[in-house]
Simulated assay, not measured.
Amino acid sequence: MGAIADAWSWLTDGSNWSGAEGIGVRLGEHLWLTAVALVITALIALPVALWLGHIGKGGALAINISNVGRAVPTLAVLGLLLLTPLGKQGNWPTIIALVLFAVPPLLTNAYVGVREADRDVVEAARGMGMSPWQLLTRVEVPLASPLIMTGIRSAAVQIVATATLAAFAGGGGLGRIITHGFATSRTPEVVGGALLVAALALVVEAVLVLGQRLLDPLRKRRPDPAEPRDAAVVKVPA
């Protein structure tokens, strides 16, 4: 427990939070990297996953291709990107590596969510004369929203944890605290940096869970777990 106590002392030292190399600046850099990588991941993965899930074709191939990003270590991808012209483009090598790592869980969850949407509800909506676009946006996506949000949460937490690698590419973020601690043989700084990354991942997870509950369009329409199952009524979102 001595290392934890020393790390806590380091974290609660106000001088470590100020300045260009302080915790506040590094935390801001880490959040920026996470937000940019997550937005790019969503812009790439969600349209592909939702459309493939809607038409029911090509999903397995897309998932297998995206899983290549999981098979290759993120640090190795980052190292290769640094050897290309992108290596001189600031944080972009790190962001690209993070996106490649985060696409698979988001793509898989969104695709599965749409494909496993209640087919009775989907067919009822189709029978009402809904267009394919209306069917996707007003029925399938709301029904798939829990799995989609789970994919976003998984991708976000992975990005937060993996963004520490930005330090190896000369970028910012909380990883710089850890690498600086190793370089100067300051164990409290190393442990403190690791605790900050873990705490940030937990906070991001909690915020996204709360957001999922607040934004879930079907939250109030789902049956109470204590209610008899035969009393539940599934309605098509308006």
Score class of each variant (00 low, 15 high):
residue 94 T to M: 10
residue 156 A to G: 11
residue 120 D to C: 13
residue 24 G to S: 15
residue 157 V to W: 05
residue 231 A to E: 13
residue 183 A to W: 07
residue 16 N to I: 08
residue 52 L to T: 11
residue 180 H to E: 14
residue 81 L to Q: 00
residue 223 P to Y: 13
residue 86 L to Q: 01
residue 79 G to M: 00
residue 112 V to C: 03
residue 14 G to E: 15
residue 124 A to D: 12
residue 84 T to F: 03
residue 161 A to L: 11
residue 68 V to T: 06
residue 128 M to G: 10
residue 14 G to W: 15
residue 87 G to C: 06
residue 19 G to R: 10
residue 125 A to K: 11
residue 131 S to H: 10
residue 84 T to I: 06
residue 202 L to F: 06
residue 223 P to N: 09
residue 125 A to F: 03
residue 233 V to C: 09
residue 151 G to N: 03
residue 162 T to M: 12
residue 97 A to I: 06
residue 233 V to F: 11
residue 190 V to S: 02
residue 121 V to D: 08
residue 57 K to S: 13
residue 199 A to T: 12
residue 141 V to E: 05
residue 215 L to R: 08
residue 225 P to K: 10
residue 223 P to D: 11
residue 91 N to H: 12
residue 225 P to R: 08
residue 129 G to I: 01
residue 109 N to S: 07
residue 103 V to M: 03
residue 54 H to L: 15
residue 74 T to I: 05
residue 17 W to V: 09
residue 179 T to K: 04
residue 214 L to W: 08
residue 196 L to S: 03
residue 204 V to M: 04
residue 141 V to I: 13
residue 33 L to D: 09
residue 87 G to S: 03
residue 78 L to D: 00
residue 105 P to R: 00
residue 44 I to E: 03
residue 121 V to G: 06
residue 152 I to A: 07
residue 177 I to V: 14
residue 24 G to F: 15
residue 97 A to N: 00
residue 155 A to L: 05
residue 101 F to R: 06
residue 120 D to L: 14
residue 47 P to N: 12
residue 208 L to I: 12
residue 152 I to F: 12
residue 5 A to M: 12
residue 1 M to F: 09
residue 167 A to I: 07
residue 185 S to T: 13
residue 190 V to H: 03
residue 7 A to P: 01
residue 96 I to S: 01
residue 66 S to G: 02
residue 101 F to A: 08
residue 215 L to C: 10
residue 171 G to K: 07
residue 117 A to P: 03
residue 3 A to D: 14
residue 95 I to L: 00
residue 175 G to W: 02
residue 198 A to S: 11
residue 60 A to D: 13
